[in-house]
Design a protein around this nucleic acid. Sequence first.
DNA 1: GATGAATGAGGATTCATTCAT
DNA 2: GATGAATGAATCCTCATTCAT
Lengths: 218, 218, 218, 218
Amino acid sequence: MNIKTANQKQQKQALIANTALKMFAETNFYDISINSIAAASGVAKGTVFNYFKTKENIFMHLLLVGYQDFFTQTISQFNENKITDLNGLKDFLLSNTEDLIDNHLTLIKLNVLRGPILEGKASMEETIQGRKYLYQIHERLATDIHNSFAEISVAMANKIFIVQSSIVSGLINLSDLDSFNQQPINNDLSDFTVSIKDDALTTFDCYLTGLFLKLKES
Amino acid sequence: MNIKTANQKQQKQALIANTALKMFAETNFYDISINSIAAASGVAKGTVFNYFKTKENIFMHLLLVGYQDFFTQTISQFNENKITDLNGLKDFLLSNTEDLIDNHLTLIKLNVLRGPILEGKASMEETIQGRKYLYQIHERLATDIHNSFAEISVAMANKIFIVQSSIVSGLINLSDLDSFNQQPINNDLSDFTVSIKDDALTTFDCYLTGLFLKLKES
Amino acid sequence: MNIKTANQKQQKQALIANTALKMFAETNFYDISINSIAAASGVAKGTVFNYFKTKENIFMHLLLVGYQDFFTQTISQFNENKITDLNGLKDFLLSNTEDLIDNHLTLIKLNVLRGPILEGKASMEETIQGRKYLYQIHERLATDIHNSFAEISVAMANKIFIVQSSIVSGLINLSDLDSFNQQPINNDLSDFTVSIKDDALTTFDCYLTGLFLKLKES
Amino acid sequence: MNIKTANQKQQKQALIANTALKMFAETNFYDISINSIAAASGVAKGTVFNYFKTKENIFMHLLLVGYQDFFTQTISQFNENKITDLNGLKDFLLSNTEDLIDNHLTLIKLNVLRGPILEGKASMEETIQGRKYLYQIHERLATDIHNSFAEISVAMANKIFIVQSSIVSGLINLSDLDSFNQQPINNDLSDFTVSIKDDALTTFDCYLTGLFLKLKES
DNA sequence: GATGAATGAGGATTCATTCAT
DNA sequence: GATGAATGAATCCTCATTCAT
């Protein structure tokens, strides 16, 4: 049969997108060619363009769907956990951050591309639609938190996750200061060695501590 | 005179580099061509290559020299200020961050390029030399802080500035979530509006508050 | 049809390669641009690179395939001719040389590029594979000669053809001594006028005469 | 004193030219830049152009002067040797060839450039003048040989040296068939291993044997 | 829907040559 | 005569995208 069901279509699209995601984990956007994505996916170059109008659309899609999934999962986990105090919330947010770093680091890296690179050539209509859906999920997560913690406004809850991503994203950019092109610089540079996970958790912890302190004081 | 003094040569190099920096404030690295840098600098394409071996070297140079200048200036300001308590230190660091954002934002944006893009083609020798010099300055700043605040180790002082850059860098990546390609999305997205300066200062403030709190507790 | 058969692909590859070969008959390697090859072939620049990874690969391909064809044809001709004595062999080799000069002169000229220019950028794997195949053919020709003339070892037969190419190649390099950039120098320079064909045949004839004489003596 | 004597000028010209010659012994013409010649000579780039109008002129100069010297020396050696018979002449020519290979191989390599590369951009006037002078020397050598061996015409004597260069030049082009870009190919390729000196001497020997045999027969 | 051949704009980089000092 | 900064033409090669089959 030549007419694929919607499901089959989605599967091939997902195959291509996930291949691109894996490649992006190890390679720079500009060093990933449509050719290599097609080859690694086991499809023809033209097929890639059947599923994504442009190269940028692939990565915009990954960014949107990835974050949608991540926050959907975060909502579930938050609601399962029946957290009652701010300390519990902080623990939850830190463990959520650990999950983000362990399992969705490329998602964070995609953020760097979004504004300066992807938006220039990604489909505006699709992107905005995807982004609105993402914001709905994000807003729902924030609302759930607000419903459990009246002192945390929805806006503040949203901002907490923006800061979460920012810290991880920023530390990625500042990592590898003690090496050049993967080759370690011989000097002792322990003061400039960034461990993304340790440093992100510590930084986010301090941030939340300070934030909740101010909350109580006001 | 065709035999330029070292100073004259440095001036022309600075002219080219600064032109590139201005362009980078508004344009993506891959959308800046050597051609356009040359044209904007008012020199021939070949002249650019007389001063920088590769395109990547231009931006690596900007990154290193920019940070060297920023931290040198920070050292002066710190020592002028005769800060005596942690609150004063926090104020100093926040005002320093404001300066960073107001006057050196492209510097932070350059960090994104460093690992994945610049190091692949920048001169390793020059870069490592420049980086070692930068680390010396950084370390000196950290030491000066440690000398004034015994409870802040040199390592911690260094880390504070890494976190400072990370937060600003990360928020840049997360900014403009309420628009697409500079065009605002019509919905009300105030919860997803990032003000780099406000959010960076708030985030860094909370972080420092939490950090200094832990410091006192321990 | 957009899925070309292997044969169709070979034809287009041959079209590009043969265009390059014709250009090389009249122009120096460095004055032949990919642009001009594409234009002369009636295809786009990118198409040339679809068939050959580098400019050097085009000419390496021509060299290998050209010699493979020439020696394959030489084998056929040798076996058709039922040569019985050394004089007959000499006549055969001289007539073979005439054919080489009349119909495959650019092949000889390509030898100059091989070591110093082509090998630096041509695909090593493809080249070695092509060269091994060429050597097999060459060896087969030498073996056939040895089978007819026990006194001529396989090694010697191989060397005869290397000398054949060398003499023609060398005389090409020494030709046009009586002109400058195709413009004749007015003096009488008949002593320095090289006729590639006449001189190559005479030289090869003398060489073979001397070689076979030594053969009989030993 | 700012006005250099003719001798001083010649010395600097010779310095630049000889540096270029040494570089050409190991590097392809197109991989030798004026910049590198200037640097290796210890002079400025502009100075090179004070002594040679174009890059091609440098190598044309080397070719002409090199051959002038070689044949001048050959004349002396011939006249010192008082050769009386053809066997003695053959020995002289072979020993002369050995000298050519051992001490002037780059001269032979320059021949390859002459027609296709140098003449296009070398000064015609200078070249023709240099070439006429070279032909006079060449002719004198041929005449001296003819005066000792009446059966060898001046034209034939001239041709012998053209063939000498051709054989060496051709074998250079055919050498290194058993390696790729200086890396040996692992197969046993002894039949395709060219020893420039051995093979050139053998080939030239056979050629002379055959030539002198025909001479006697006629 | 899948394919992959063809396209050609675009970019980094090289280098001989000029010429003001 | 020496210098070396400036020039810009020229070249190879990449790669997203199109589209006929």
